[in-house]
Write a protein that binds this DNA or RNA. Sequence first.
DNA 1: GAGAGATTGTTGTCGCGTCAACCACTAGGC
DNA 2: GCCTAGTGGTTGACGCGACAACAATCTCTC
Lengths: 159, 159
Amino acid sequence: MTDDRWLDETQQQAWRALLVFVNRGLPQLERTLKEHDLLVVHYSILVALSDAPDDTMRLTELADAANLSQSRLTHRLRTMIDRGHVEIAADADDGRGKNATLTAAGRQLLERVAPIHADDVRCLVFDHLDGAETAALANAMSKVARTLCDHDAFTETGC
Amino acid sequence: MTDDRWLDETQQQAWRALLVFVNRGLPQLERTLKEHDLLVVHYSILVALSDAPDDTMRLTELADAANLSQSRLTHRLRTMIDRGHVEIAADADDGRGKNATLTAAGRQLLERVAPIHADDVRCLVFDHLDGAETAALANAMSKVARTLCDHDAFTETGC
DNA sequence: GAGAGATTGTTGTCGCGTCAACCACTAGGC
DNA sequence: GCCTAGTGGTTGACGCGACAACAATCTCTC
């Protein structure tokens, strides 16, 4: 049971904790945002757009920035457009592409829920960590995230 | 923008990386297990049962051990029973309760996919970290996880 | 300039998870 | 004995996400 085919003690502890975070922590964030008729996905989309120049982004970039598949983005975007938080316009240069823009109402919504969500995130994670621990967490997870974003295509050969 | 109502630089970095992990990393684990007709949830249930004495657990405990709601457990359990990986029996002492037991086929399945899944997890997370980083990650996430498991009821008042 | 192939985005289907409602049983008064 | 809570577990409905198929456009090559 202590092959290198298995996780060692520390790895197991880290992995189990991550699963607890995912399966118990994240649903709490969803619940809080749902009180404002939002999903965390919606929030991510709003943030990505608000970070972009002119509050505008090509859909593919937006999907990438928010860690979404194109399909998922399209689905979520539909309701956000209906509610007037986002607008869509065909790209002038590339007939295939479309640009999403944050509307004034969308920005207003974001500014209203952002503090609430930030509170929630701190309460869930960072209130339990001191500066050094937070830095260590950021360092470790950033290394993990980097490779996930890099060979995004994910060549599964041997990892 | 640098209120204490917001996340600081390091916190943001950690949080963004966690979101990348959740939205890009976890789906990869699902994909790999799906080749064996399993979800990560299934795997968690198998592991929890195999860790229990007599490979048997009360459903409520099982749900807790696998970080699941009772409803979700019931839904997943149905197919696992159909496939003969788990058995269910009424509890003798408490007429309301039921016990889930891992069958021989279930244990066999677990032993077959466990190395594959472990490989996947290491490849996703731990291959990118040295010993100190892994320990730091385990420490930080464990602190987060602890409070999630404790006041599981989650008294949302002020966090 | 006409295909072949790649890129961008949408649509529909299907399985999973949440939530609320529900049934079955136990426990604690009286 | 009942009658009310409370607990353990199930069910059904509904919304979301993955996936595959599709349409539309660009690009490259000849």
